[in-house]
Design a protein around this nucleic acid. Sequence first.
DNA 1: GACAACATACCAACCGGTTGGTATGTTTGC
DNA 2: GCAAACATACCAACCGGTTGGTATGTTGTC
Lengths: 215, 215
Amino acid sequence: MARPATKIDAKAKLLEAALSVIRAKGYSATSVDELCAAAGVTKGAFFHHFKGKNELGVAAADYWSEITGSLFASAPYHNHADPFDRILAYIDFRKALLKGGIPDFTCLVGTMVQETFETAPTIRAACERSITGHAATLEADIEAAMRERNMTPDWTAKSLALHTQAVIQGAFILAKATGGAEIAADSIDHLSRYIKLLFGVATEPAKPRAEGKSR
Amino acid sequence: MARPATKIDAKAKLLEAALSVIRAKGYSATSVDELCAAAGVTKGAFFHHFKGKNELGVAAADYWSEITGSLFASAPYHNHADPFDRILAYIDFRKALLKGGIPDFTCLVGTMVQETFETAPTIRAACERSITGHAATLEADIEAAMRERNMTPDWTAKSLALHTQAVIQGAFILAKATGGAEIAADSIDHLSRYIKLLFGVATEPAKPRAEGKSR
DNA sequence: GACAACATACCAACCGGTTGGTATGTTTGC
DNA sequence: GCAAACATACCAACCGGTTGGTATGTTGTC
């Protein structure tokens, strides 16, 4: 057993603190001292578990992958029998997560990679793993939906899966810029509409072209 | 005439330096000293022109709006007679800008707002102005294209204009995460495809549904 | 008693910002 | 028309606080 059990482990508390503090203030603006204060541990504990701030950054990104990985793995959208329905339910799920304060629903690795892509290669790589790894879980459903319909489009399942992540990350930026989630939700609606159109599902009350004007 | 003429103004050099340094390292990680060194001026000059680092941030965002504003205003995509063609040409133009190093084609305000949305309201507001202002230039063409086709969709021109910005911002994040522009280009292709589908333009070699399986 | 898990105390470098100062206009009173 | 008064643009040196990081304990567990 070995675990002291009395305490929830300084490392875990530091990682948990990192998620909230970095999402609110960004990676560079978050100091080690502040992280320790938020976690309720001392600096000695910090440097006992991490060689330096960058290593904490990598660990935070990996921890984020774990947390979100299990959140999405156990999410109800997998219950749909049809893979296409799972894709749409996934997007609905992402939209439903846009609740609470902005730091609460935005993405840790999306925030971190913006600041570190040039200066901290190990953090950049950890963020890449997190994003592409999550996209890969979607790719399978997209591929299945394509196969089911015998589609041979000029795009790949992988690029569409990554596109969903781009839209979501971009929606977060708009939310941060405007100070609210409304525009982000609209953008995710557009993503949903796109995927329905791609797979040939009618969405609109659509009365396209009524009078002349062909194009 | 009065112009010192000998020098190009310390303020202008600082703003120019801010664009490149902040895009590469982020706002928080960029120090005033570093900015001064990159601009070739002293700290005294910095604080003569700006009350503090945050004021420089606001000025940099406004300067970014100016620079990009005139870049897009004079871009050739406006030459198309049909508003819908202008939209597609705009997106092509954005894709064509994905050249050179990542800090060279990514967005200053998209980067800055991620770090400052909670801690520096004035910078956040300046970034919002920049993004929404740019989106507004697109909105007019979208509205015109909708009117031309007598469309009454369940989305607005404004939300679609902002969605294009979300996709582009998200594409930048993917570029930063993967260390290359390829995935970003793919995502912009998806955006182009979406808009064509929305406006009822066939894009694909598309052989949707060949055998049974209706849905 | 050895070792992991912490805490305490401390440091040199760097941070944003201030200081007192100079050099060069520009304005205004006479 | 010219000099005092003021304004602008900039600079080098410096300041106190904060930074990431280290060196050295102390404590609890096997």
